[in-house]
Design a protein around this nucleic acid. Structure first.
Lengths: 158, 158
DNA sequence: TATTGTTATACTCTATAACTATA
DNA sequence: TATAGTTATAGAGTATAACAATA
């Protein structure tokens, strides 16, 4: 009767729920990304590194808030990045409690490599969906995030 | 210069990558869903239970493939659902290796409760984005998944 | 030979609570 | 009092490898 998936299972009203479809889309996208990029870097870490590159000198806690992580979760992530030589913790001007997080040049290189991988995936998706739809999709994805942040569903603790 | 997020951080070209935006969207959606639904059930489990409801009597392995999980990962999930009284493992007609997975009536009730919660979230998103955009977003989300499954990026092992 | 369910095991990601040093 | 970073700890969620039963 209804829609079936790639394995012949009945999806019923599953495809009518944004939460579920979003989850499925993200799972597929992460698998595709890790197939293309042979780095050990997850999309989650990719996001954090890009955020640091675009905002050098931020506090760990600010970065954590931006990606919806607890600040304690950020500690082992930064430890790992520092050990790999991708980021540096520097003194934060005017606040001796805080660290200013920056990318090293090797971190910048890594981000650029990952961006290239991401672009490969984008190219494949664009080829399959068409450029107009792909762009439209990205636009709506951003509006969807705005909608969630605007509602009281997700806290925007500053 | 560029776009900034809710916390004032520069996003740079981050918003131009589907993988990243999808990830962020999904994180926000899961937080919103768990704020609305006070069940202990994650969107991931919600998806699995709905799939079982729509496809009663499937093998564990088929369900696992459909949601992109290893079949060994499915074992503790089904154990948990069985202990909670949501699903039953029954003999699979014609294959004595397999189990036929079905929802109990209490499992059906749970799924209906979760669907109600999901609809609440949909209503809030629709109010913020507008119905047309929300529907368009869902359509494109499905096409995006198709694009990934169609490409060789994600294995469709049968 | 291949598949189904399972076990044992380990790895990743994340959060909570409590501590310290600053602010 | 509140915030930044940290530690210790615990809980999800997931995968790999190997096994027995069955196809």
């Amino acid at each position: 009767m209804g829609t079936t998936d790639a394995f012949g299972l009945e999806l019923g009203n599953l495809p009518d729920m944004l939460t579920i479809e979003l989850r499925m889309g993200q799972i597929l996208a992460e698998k595709a990304f890790s197939t293309i990029s042979h780095t050990q870097v997850s999309p989650g870490l990719f996001m954090i590194l890009t955020l640091i590159r675009n905002n050098p000198g931020q506090k760990q806690a600010s970065l954590a808030r931006s990606v919806q992580l607890d600040r304690s979760t950020m500690v082992p992530i930064m430890d790992h990045c520092e050990r790999q030589g991708w980021v540096q913790r520097q003194p934060f001007p005017g606040d001796r409690r805080a660290h200013a997080i920056c990318l090293t040049s090797s971190g910048v290189e890594l981000v650029e490599k990952l961006e290239q991988d991401a672009r490969k995936l984008e190219t494949q998706v664009t080829a399959a969906m068409g450029k107009q739809k792909r762009d439209q999709f990205l636009t709506l994805l951003k509006e969807f995030q705005q909608a969630l942040l605007a509602g009281s569903q997700v806290e925007v603790s500053s």
